[in-house]
Design a protein around this nucleic acid. Sequence first.
DNA 1: CACCCGTCTTGACAGTGTCAAGTTATATCG
DNA 2: CGATATAACTTGACACTGTCAAGACGGGTG
Lengths: 190, 190
Amino acid sequence: MTDRYHHGDLRRALIDAAVEAVGEAGPSALSLRAVAKKAGVSHAAPAHHFGDKAGLLTAVAAEGFGRLADTLEAAWDATGDFTAVGAAYVRFAIDRRPYFEVMFRPELVHADDPDLQRAASRSAAALHRGSGESDGGEFNAAALAAWSLAHGFAELLVAGNFPQAVKNDPEAAFRAVGRATGLGSDHSSG
Amino acid sequence: MTDRYHHGDLRRALIDAAVEAVGEAGPSALSLRAVAKKAGVSHAAPAHHFGDKAGLLTAVAAEGFGRLADTLEAAWDATGDFTAVGAAYVRFAIDRRPYFEVMFRPELVHADDPDLQRAASRSAAALHRGSGESDGGEFNAAALAAWSLAHGFAELLVAGNFPQAVKNDPEAAFRAVGRATGLGSDHSSG
DNA sequence: CACCCGTCTTGACAGTGTCAAGTTATATCG
DNA sequence: CGATATAACTTGACACTGTCAAGACGGGTG
């Protein structure tokens, strides 16, 4: 299997290894050589598939945005309530933390990558759906508020800035936060 | 001046150089050797004052939290309105972006540093002041909401995830967001 | 003046990302 | 079936990184 010269699906294996490595020590401590060793290939193999380190992280981020979009769309379809979508956002940040830690760091990835941008737009759209539709004009304040609230909560949570009571049950805390702002339920109730 | 063996206030100079370097290429691209060169000292000088790279970034983060706390307290004293405090938070993320990029990255700093924790608590308290007082119990949903909203907006903004209309006048956009949530301004609007 | 000790330098080490050139296996074509 | 083109991967090298040990310097105190 792994001792073949042609790996079979090395790209897939490298992304998995990268996600695992990020989960262990964070994205800034990521070493291409360690990832290569984890996948059982030589130290320069990743460059062949991803160009450079940022290329690998770009693939990770794109995959993360795709997964997040799936999660948010499912939450919306199931409940039709923004607070539930936001809670799913928070849960994603916890459960898929390695992805989350890469997705919003433009300095670590190739921010202009088409796949990445496409996937990011998908998850942004999924979140907006839960907070009112966009007016044709400048921007939609409710959508910005929804995204900011969910994202800020998730970031502060995984960065360890919240008290223990919140860490114990983050989703419950976020539902309380969602209620405090009255963002999702006043227009879509019925 | 700089050609003396004893620098005078090298610690100060190194922090300034680090902030400048972070502003140019982000915290993950920061090089201790480049910082040392910028300050006109040898490559190992920073280690003497800060122990290691994380130590230097810890000092930057602590200073950033101190500055942020000052900013938020001033905004609250001047207006008594949460939306204004949140807007000050957003403005800080823009104006002092190098600090902001380090402050919420526990993997880059010594998160258990006492100075850092003290400064972080100060700014958290300043932000809470603008969103209602803490109940003695578990946590305060309004305070969490306020912090999450301001922080998420700031993060998404500096990460480039917002449309151009928002980037053009971020503070105005945030005020709209603050109004959409009705967090602090329903009593003081005029 | 002599000493001490904090400040900073020098030199070395293993580890990093990236590039160029070479090697191996798969696929295509005669 | 055998030759060959091509993609996948390896090997080796380069400049650069953070960190550590040892040494050089110089201001402050006796």
